[in-house]
Design a protein around this nucleic acid. Sequence first.
DNA 1: AGGCCGCTGTTACGGGATTCACAACGAATC
DNA 2: GATTCGTTGTGAATCCCGTAACAGCGGCCT
Lengths: 227, 227
Amino acid sequence: MRKTRRACNVPDATIHRLPLYLEKLKLLQAIGVEDVSSRQLAESLDIKASQLRHDFHYFGGFSRPGRPYQVDILVPALEQIIGISQPQPTVILGAGHLGQALANYQNLELQGFPVVGIFDVNPKLIGLEIRGQPVRDMDELELLIRDKGVRIAILTVPAANAQAVTDRLVRAGIVGIFNFAPTDLKVPETVVVRNERLAVGIMSLSFRVKCIIEGGYERTDGLVAGE
Amino acid sequence: MRKTRRACNVPDATIHRLPLYLEKLKLLQAIGVEDVSSRQLAESLDIKASQLRHDFHYFGGFSRPGRPYQVDILVPALEQIIGISQPQPTVILGAGHLGQALANYQNLELQGFPVVGIFDVNPKLIGLEIRGQPVRDMDELELLIRDKGVRIAILTVPAANAQAVTDRLVRAGIVGIFNFAPTDLKVPETVVVRNERLAVGIMSLSFRVKCIIEGGYERTDGLVAGE
DNA sequence: AGGCCGCTGTTACGGGATTCACAACGAATC
DNA sequence: GATTCGTTGTGAATCCCGTAACAGCGGCCT
Ligand SMILES: NC(=O)c1ccc[n+]([C@@H]2O[C@H](COP(=O)([O-])OP(=O)(O)OC[C@H]3O[C@@H](n4cnc5c(N)ncnc54)[C@H](O)[C@@H]3O)[C@@H](O)[C@H]2O)c1
Ligand SMILES: NC(=O)c1ccc[n+]([C@@H]2O[C@H](COP(=O)([O-])OP(=O)(O)OC[C@H]3O[C@@H](n4cnc5c(N)ncnc54)[C@H](O)[C@@H]3O)[C@@H](O)[C@H]2O)c1
C-alpha cells in the first residue's frame, strides 16, 4: 500500500526513462544475456550509471549490493511498474491518416498496447479493415470500452473535434488519453492526458539546427571553442 | 555574436515552450489582438507568468517595463529565434504508413516546414503522388537536398535501416534529423537528432493511469488524502 | 502634477533532478 | 582465509529549473 503511494511521486523524468530501460533490457533478453550491470545498461543509453540506480531506487531497487541486475527479474518488474504486465487494450479515435498509421503500427501491440477498436464518424471509412479490424461507428464506442475494459485512448481527430470526443471518452470511463491533436484538452483530475505535439518537436529541432549553423559547434554540455 | 552564443545555452525546457507561445500568439494575431500581457499569455497555457518572462529574458526581452508585449513584434521575433523566419524545406525518408501520414499533414507547411521531397526504396511506392508531390527514388536524394537547401529530414524508415539512411543524410549535408524509428542514431557533433518515441509516450501514460486506478487520486503536485 | 495601477526586466530564492561519494556486500583469486 | 575487484543501495552535494519578489518604467485618471 505504501509502495503504490510512493510510486506515484516518482518524477516524470524518471518515468520517461523506464521505457528506454525496458526496451534495452528486452533486447538483451532476446539475445540471451542473463545479467547486466548499471554501468553497462546506462552507457548503452548515454546516461550515468548513478542515475539509473537512483531511478531504480525509487522502486526499492531490483538487486542487492554485490550482485548485478538480472534481466529476467528486471523486465517483468519494469513491466509491472509501467502497468503492462497484462496487455492494455487501447482504442483509436479518428481513422484518418495518422489514425490509420498508428492502427497499422505493430509495435504498439508488441509493447503491450493492442488496439481493440478504431472509431470514426466518416461513413466512407466505417467498415474499412485495418490489420483485421473494422473501423467502427462511434455508436459502438461506450459498449466496446466497457466490454474490453479499455482505459487508454489514442486521439487522432481534428483539433476542432478533440474536446468533444474527449468529453465522451471521459464519460465512457477512459482514464488515459494520448492526444495527437494540437489542442489542450480539459479533463477531470482523475484522467491523464499526454500531448504529443509534432510542432514542439520539429521547432525545437529547428532551433538547435539554427544554433549549429549560426553559432559554431558548441553544445550545452560544455566545450566552447575559445572566446 | 555574443547573442548567438548565449542563445544556444538556453535550457531545453525553455525551448520546448517557445512553440507553444508562438502557437497561441498566432491565434491571437489571427483574431486581431494587438498586445498581450505575460499573465494573459501564461495563464492560457497553464504556466506561471514569471516563467514566461524568465524564458523571454534568455533572449533579452521583447518589450520594456510598463508596456505589454505586442503580438506583431513577438511573432516574428519567436519565428526568428526558432529559425523559421524563412520556411525550412524538409524531406521525408520512408513513404510507408507514417511517412505518408506526415506528408499529408498540412500543419507541417503552415508551421514553416514545407515538405519538398518524399523518398523511398520501394518501387511500388515511387511515383505515387502525395499532396502534389511524387515519392522519389533515393537516387535523387543528394541532388534535391543540395538544390533546395534542405537542412532538416524526417526519418520514418524501419529501425533496421535507420542508421544507414542517417549516414547518407549526414553525408548529404542534413543538419537536423527528426527520428521516428525506435533506435538511437549515431551522428557527428555537428548534427542534431530528435527522437520521437511513441513507446515512451504511451508507457509513461500507462504508468500514470495505473497510479490513478491503484493508488487513489493524488497527484505529484501535492494533495494526498490523509495517511 | 501627483498618485495609482499594471506591466516588464531582473535578481534572488527554493526545490527538484542529476551527479558524486561511499558503505555494504558478493564473488573470484591467490 | 585474505584480498581485491566489481557491484548495488543510499544519502549528500551540486547543479539547474521554476517561482517569487521587487525595482523601474508607462500610462491613466484625478
Ligand atoms: N497526419 C499527421 O501526420 C499528424 C501528425 C501530428 C498530429 N496530427 C493531428 O492528428 C489529428 C488527425 O490528423 P490526420 O492527418 O489523421 O487528419 P485526418 O483528417 O486525416 O483524420 C481525422 C479523422 O478523424 C475523423 N473524425 C472527425 N471528427 C470525428 C469525431 N468527432 N469522432 C470521431 N472521428 C472523427 C475524420 O473522419 C477523419 O477520418 C489532427 O488533429 C492532426 O492535427 C496529425
Ligand atoms: N506507423 C506508425 O504509426 C509509427 C509510429 C511511431 C513510429 N513508427 C516508426 O516509424 C518507422 C516507419 O513506420 P511505418 O509504420 O511507416 O513503417 P512502413 O513499413 O509502413 O514504412 C517504412 C517505409 O520505409 C521504406 N524504406 C525501407 N528502407 C528504406 C531505405 N533504406 N530508404 C528509404 N526508405 C526505406 C519502406 O519501403 C517503407 O515504405 C518505423 O521505424 C516505425 O517503428 C511508426
